[in-house]
Amino acid sequence: MRSDISQDVLRAGHAACPGCAYPMGMRMVLKTLGLRTVVVVVPSCAAIIAGPFPNTSLGVPSFHSAFEIAAPTAAGISAALKRQGVDDVTVLAFAGDGGTFDIGLQALSGAADRNEDFIYVCLDNEGYMNTGVQVSSSTPQYSWTGTTPSGNTRHKKQIMEIMAAHRIPYAATASIAFPEDLMAKVEKAKGMRGTRFIHLLAPCVTGWKIAPDEAPLVSRLSVESNVFPLYEIFDGLRYEINHQPKRIPVERYLVLQGRFSHISAEQTEAIQTETDRAWAELCSREMRSRQLYEGSKGTAARVSGD
């Protein structure tokens, strides 16, 4: 049964910067999950968007927990609700990339290992944006941040591979530029039990140095250039690519973002090479997993590409 998405759970008047992708993603996730949801936010832009005491933009019970414990906080609430006989409520955690890839990774790994019952949405803006743009292990190579003034030397950590290694029932990437795909994935996650992980790319106007109206466009280009492909991993084993991208050159994605304004032609080429490699790798994983796990049920909501 499809959820009624006519009702917004994230209210107007939230505290996000103009043009921020976070509330776009949060709004779509929350309206899909509906009112029988408990939300955990941790220090991140999501906690700012949730509002300062005593105000809140969240229309469901919610808790601002500590930075690195989104996952065990959600696990604790989930276990306690079940003890109270409440079994039809989704516990949802929103955490940023710092709270997921870096400081919260141990706690997330522990909870995923135990297959605790919650949906975890990582709102990935590729850096510590809430503290004013510093490098995280999600920041892409060559990107400027306040702590990588001449460009990030490291590759972006492959969080989806890490989550897949835990064999959790569901992991998916999603984009605000593909709302139907995003909401279908949330809907699918809602119908499952255990640890469900959604990796949502959320461009940051300030940190990425883009115009306030460009977050959806940049998001779309991240998918169409293959920098951020849309796919799902079931049980950590079976891969399904949800969107066949247009494979536009990465340069078109990079050129819109001030954080890449300093990079050389060679570095752009290196990003293109790495993007092509990662896409080929993903396609081969999908093909291999299809051969290995043929017959296991795939209910992925495919988005038609062109």
Binding site: P72, T73, A75, G76, A80, L81, A107, G110, D113
Partner: peptide, 22 residues
Amino acid sequence: TMVKVESEHSAMATCLSASLTG
């Protein structure tokens, strides 16, 4: 419900959020 966590830090995180749940 016994939650066999991966650290004491997460033990307290789990307990405190469960306690807030009531």
